[in-house]
């Protein structure tokens, strides 16, 4: 078990320049910055159209100090496969290939290519940064938008369907490593990346990303809201290593703590959930409680 990283021993080298076009208080900026610290200089990135495209900059200025290939919306994973194939032909087995796609580019339009690459066992690391909607194009609903969220195209009734559980889909591909992380817990993200880079096949990361304009909160509360998602047991931090599931970081601590913050606090902190009724919130609370009863039992 490798030692947990803390703020003081987190590498100080930065791979992103300041002054990007990301929104004020963007959660992706935080996760991306720390993620790149874990990946290091010997990395090639693949990015489909998404918030990250804009964060990375408009021609001819790039904000990221790593090589990056912009690709069409559906093809992040296929492009990662292609770069890897070239590296193999050149005998390069050390450069990391990392795809960074949004939730839309992963759970919706990108799912086919990702599933194909995972099935082939293509050896790259894939990050789905999940701000729970097509935020770059103006907050439209995606497969991972949670139920009840008001978006630009679910304006009055909110999303009527459940959030797609993409880590579970990826775990079904029998990957060596699947992780659920959050921008509010960057050190957990860092450690998980470091722990899996040597593992074979596709490594899948799902990162919960608070988004001020998309979720409706004052940007200063971004980390607080990301933490609330975890402390309410609504969004869990975990890893699945060769099929074995375990909660990590703050989620792991909740097993001992046996006390979840009421999920109502999470919903009431964001204006996108303004139409959720008390009944709906109680139902969601019930489902969370059931899920955690399961975790508690497993822990015993």
């Amino acid at each position: 078990m490798q030692a947990k990283t803390n703020i003081l021993n987190l590498p100080t080298q930065e791979f992103v320049h300041p002054g990007t076009r990301a929104c004020t208080g963007c959660g992706l900026s935080i996760a991306y910055r720390v993620g790149l610290k874990a990946l290091g200089k010997d990395t090639i990135l693949v990015v489909p159209p998404s918030c990250l495209t804009v964060l990375q900059g408009l021609f001819p200025v790039a904000s990221t100090k790593l090589p990056c290939l912009n690709v069409t919306f559906a093809s992040t994973a296929a492009a990662a496969t292609g770069i890897l194939a070239t590296l193999k032909t050149k005998g390069n087995d050390h450069t990391t290939v990392a795809g960074w796609a949004g939730d839309g580019g992963t759970s919706d339009i990108g799912l086919q290519a990702l599933s194909g690459a995972a099935e082939r066992g293509d050896n790259f690391i894939y990050f789905c940064y999940d701000n729970e909607g097509y935020m770059n194009t103006g907050v439209q609903r995606s497969g991972t938008t949670p139920i009840g969220a008001v978006t630009a195209n679910t304006p009055f009734k909110g999303k009527l369907q459940q959030k797609k559980d993409v880590p579970a889909i990826m775990a079904a591909h029998k990957l060596s490593y699947v992780a659920a992380c959050s921008a509010a817990y960057p050190l957990d993200l860092y450690d998980k990346i470091k722990s899996c880079l040597h593992l074979p096949g596709t490594k899948y990361f799902h990162i919960h990303i608070p988004c001020p304009p998309g979720w409706g909160y004052d940007p200063r509360y971004g980390i607080k809201i990301g933490r609330l998602a975890v402390e309410t047991g609504y969004y869990d931090l975990y890893e699945i290593v060769n099929g074995e599931f375990r909660l990590t970081a703050a989620s792991e601590k909740l097993i001992e703590k046996r006390k979840l913050t009421p999920v109502r606090e999470y919903f009431r902190a964001q204006s996108r959930f303004r139409i959720l009724t008390d009944e709906q919130i109680n139902e969601i609370q019930r489902q969370i409680d059931m899920k955690w009863d399961g975790y508690y039992k497993k822990g015993e």
Binding site: I7, L10, T12, E14, V16, H17, P18, G19, T20, A22, T24, G25, C26, G27, S29, I30, R33, V34, P186, L187, P212, D218, P219, R220, Y221, G222, I223, K224
Partner: peptide
């Protein structure tokens, strides 16, 4: 320094803010 989305806070004593690029999100204060 850790949570600044814009990487405009230096890891120094005292931490310094690059006001050329700081977008004023307030995460550091929070």
């Amino acid at each position: 320094w850790l949570y600044c989305p814009e990487i405009v806070i230096s890891r120094t004593i005292p931490p310094q803010f690059n006001l050329e690029y700081c977008k004023g999100c307030g995460i550091c204060a929070e």
